[in-house]
Computed example of a mutant assay.
Amino acid sequence: MAIARQTGAEVRRIARGYRETSFAGEVAAAADLFAAAGIGCRTDVADVPNSLRKDLTAELHTWVNEVLSGRTGGACAIELTATDQVVRLTMSQGTHLRQLHFPVEDRGFTHSD
C-alpha cells in the first residue's frame, strides 16, 4: 500500500508540472525560433478549438522545420482565423505558402501548398 501511495504522489507531482501549450503558445515559440534565426515573423492567431490544437500544432511544426531548413530568407507570417464552421491556418514566407482549412465539426482538413 505504501508503494501505491508513493507512486500516486509521484504521478501527481509530474502531472502538476505538465502543462499543455496552447496553439498561441506554439506560434509564439515558432516566432522566437525564427527571431533567433534572423527571420522576422508576423503572427495573428485567433482562439482555436481544443479538438484541432494537435492537428494545427503538427502542421505548424512541419512548416517551421521546412522554413528553417530551407533558409530562403525573408519575413514570414502565421495567421489563424476561425468561424463557426472552419478554422483557417495560413503560413507564408516569400513564395512558400501553406493554407489549411479545418472544418470544425469533422476534424478533417484540406491542404494547399
Rank of each mutant, 00 (worst) to 15 (best):
M1T: 13
A2S: 13
A2V: 12
A2F: 10
A4N: 10
A4P: 01
R5Q: 11
Q6A: 14
Q6C: 06
T7L: 15
T7R: 13
G8K: 07
A9T: 12
A9G: 03
E10F: 00
R12E: 15
R12N: 10
R12D: 14
R13M: 09
R13N: 05
R13S: 08
I14Q: 03
A15V: 12
A15F: 07
A15M: 11
R16Q: 13
R16F: 09
R16I: 06
R16P: 01
G17I: 07
Y18V: 06
Y18N: 06
T21D: 11
T21S: 12
F23G: 01
A24F: 03
A24G: 15
G25P: 02
E26A: 14
E26H: 11
E26P: 01
V27L: 05
V27G: 00
V27H: 00
A31N: 09
A31E: 15
D32M: 06
L33I: 03
F34V: 05
I39A: 05
I39P: 00
C41P: 00
C41A: 14
T43Y: 13
T43Q: 11
A46F: 10
V48T: 15
V48C: 15
P49I: 12
N50S: 14
N50I: 10
S51P: 03
S51M: 09
S51V: 15
R53K: 07
K54L: 10
L56T: 12
L56Y: 13
L56R: 06
T57R: 00
T57W: 11
T57P: 01
T57S: 15
A58L: 15
A58E: 14
E59A: 14
E59V: 11
W63I: 12
N65F: 11
N65H: 14
G70M: 10
G70E: 13
R71D: 08
R71Y: 01
R71E: 13
T72G: 04
G73E: 11
G73T: 07
G74P: 05
A75L: 06
C76N: 08
A77S: 12
I78M: 08
E79F: 00
T81C: 02
T81F: 00
D84L: 04
D84E: 09
Q85S: 07
L89V: 06
S92C: 03
Q93S: 07
Q93K: 05
Q93F: 05
T95K: 02
T95R: 03
H96C: 04
L97W: 05
L97A: 04
L97R: 05
R98P: 01
R98H: 02
R98Q: 02
L100Q: 01
H101V: 03
H101R: 01
H101E: 06
F102T: 03
F102H: 04
F102P: 01
F102G: 03
P103F: 05
P103E: 09
V104G: 05
V104P: 02
V104W: 06
E105Y: 06
R107L: 09
G108K: 09
G108I: 04
F109R: 11
T110L: 12
H111L: 08
D113P: 01
